[in-house]
């Protein structure tokens, strides 16, 4: 029996899952709830501050990780979830979810490099 190539997608899935477990709750809380509701003092996500943060290499790297790692985690898990819900079109689903993760990765890289 041939060895599977699943590690290519499972490695990023596991790394992204760990990363998302540590960071996503607080990120969602800050960017999606506290800032929009005005519950944070100052202008944490203002254009100036965000632009400044994304301008440095460390900021770029952090923001890239925030997007790319959870993207590959979510993509791989979604592929399995769709199968679990009874859809038996695994190859098509795999292409769609991994293409989406790749798109998010590329958009993040291009955007960050343009800042």
């Amino acid at each position: 029996m041939a060895k599977s190539h699943k590690p290519i997608v499972w490695g990023p899935f596991a790394a992204g899952g760990t990363f998302a477990a540590f960071f996503n709750p607080v990120l969602i809380l800050v960017t999606g709830i506290l800032v929009p509701l005005g519950l944070l003092s100052g202008d944490v996500l203002s254009y100036t501050r965000a632009h400044e943060f994304a301008g440095g290499w460390i900021g770029k790297l952090i923001l890239f990780a925030f997007v790319a790692l959870p993207a590959w985690h979510a993509a791989h898990r979604l592929r399995i979830t769709v199968h679990d819900f009874g859809v038996r079109a695994d190859i098509l689903v795999a292409v769609l979810v991994y293409a989406s993760a790749a798109l998010a990765t590329v958009v993040a890289i291009v955007s960050l490099l343009a800042i």
């Binding site: 998302a20 996503n24 990120l27 969602i28 960017t31 999606g32 254009y47 965000a50 632009h51 994304a54 923001l63 925030f66 997007v67 959870p70 993207a71 985690h73 979510a74 993509a75 898990r77 979604l78 399995i80 979830t81 679990d84 989406s100 998010a104 958009v107 993040a108 291009v110 955007s111 960050l112 343009a114 800042i115």
Partner: peptide, 23 residues
Amino acid sequence: REVTCVFIGAYTGVLTMGLLRLS
């Protein structure tokens, strides 16, 4: 647990959009 990926994925989309707009 598996369905959490829908929300993690969607939020990733929001963040990606934010970076694009920032650029």
